[in-house]
Design a protein around this nucleic acid. Sequence first.
DNA 1: GTACCTGCAAATTCTTTGCAGTGGG
DNA 2: CCCACTGCAAAGAATTTGCAGGTAC
Lengths: 167, 167
Amino acid sequence: MSASPESLQPLDVSLSPQERFEEYLQTRGLRQTSQRKFLIDRVFSEHDHFDADELIDRLPRRGEDNYVSPATVYRTLREFVDAGLLNSFQLDGRTVFELDYGYPQHDHLYCTRCRKLLEFQSETLMQIRDDVAADLGFRVASHRMIIQGVCRECSKNRRKKRKHDLV
Amino acid sequence: MSASPESLQPLDVSLSPQERFEEYLQTRGLRQTSQRKFLIDRVFSEHDHFDADELIDRLPRRGEDNYVSPATVYRTLREFVDAGLLNSFQLDGRTVFELDYGYPQHDHLYCTRCRKLLEFQSETLMQIRDDVAADLGFRVASHRMIIQGVCRECSKNRRKKRKHDLV
DNA sequence: GTACCTGCAAATTCTTTGCAGTGGG
DNA sequence: CCCACTGCAAAGAATTTGCAGGTAC
């Protein structure tokens, strides 16, 4: 019913994210630019959750090769979401992105101590979702569930001194 | 398992929200001010979801009786959440508040067409939540589930002209 | 060549904060 | 009377937008 984060494996997909995005651009008369190519490579080479700021921080600085301006990063992240490559959701007031294309549907546990996001999958959850929606005559497009609390590691280290005292 | 919004009835609580808040203030050495009294009355007289902006819009304007400045509204809403009177969550990038004290735990369906929030309750959902958390050694504090889609009314009116074309 | 794209800076939106004056207990 | 509270305006944080010049196609 539920799965540990390690078991969240990529799905088989016929097109790479890059190819999928090319297709998306072409069908809309948009262009393949060096910035878009660079960003899609970057984003799909790391499999973690991130927000716009974190991504920008890890990108080349102004003046360096492959610099992409913040405005373009924001614009491009939005396109990735439109294209179905990324998912985004709000957490703690920030917009968190995660890989969507090539990854199975899942939900999250959020540790309010270390701010880590764990993932889980549950068939039963989908079933409840659909039952509730059917009851109310609601047509489901998607859902988002986040369980908040404290992860195993943070529970263990409760009384120890922590390097990163985030909350 | 699930319930229509109409069936979400207030719980029996020994103290009124006002009394509960007084208690909260007293135990912390904080003060009962006219602004706080006015706001708690206002907020608990309407049982709907709202954000800070919407609330401010419905409040008396500068110069009128019972005017409360935006800064104070923001400060006070935060106190209400701390006091357990209100809940808040992020939706579409805005912070939505809802009554918590005196209301049962529930989750939401969000119509992306008319932006209405419906509520539902599910024991099974709580069970899944706890099972998943137990599996991962995660200590649950709370959770938030939002099902997104299109409500019954908006589905019916799909092709008709709508007065408020919000999306 | 055309129109889409990018970088830059300025504008927006939402929310928080510093400060001086007010008022609750 | 003290110190929390409020209103005001300014500051912040996160994102979006207008515009002039660059560049896919």
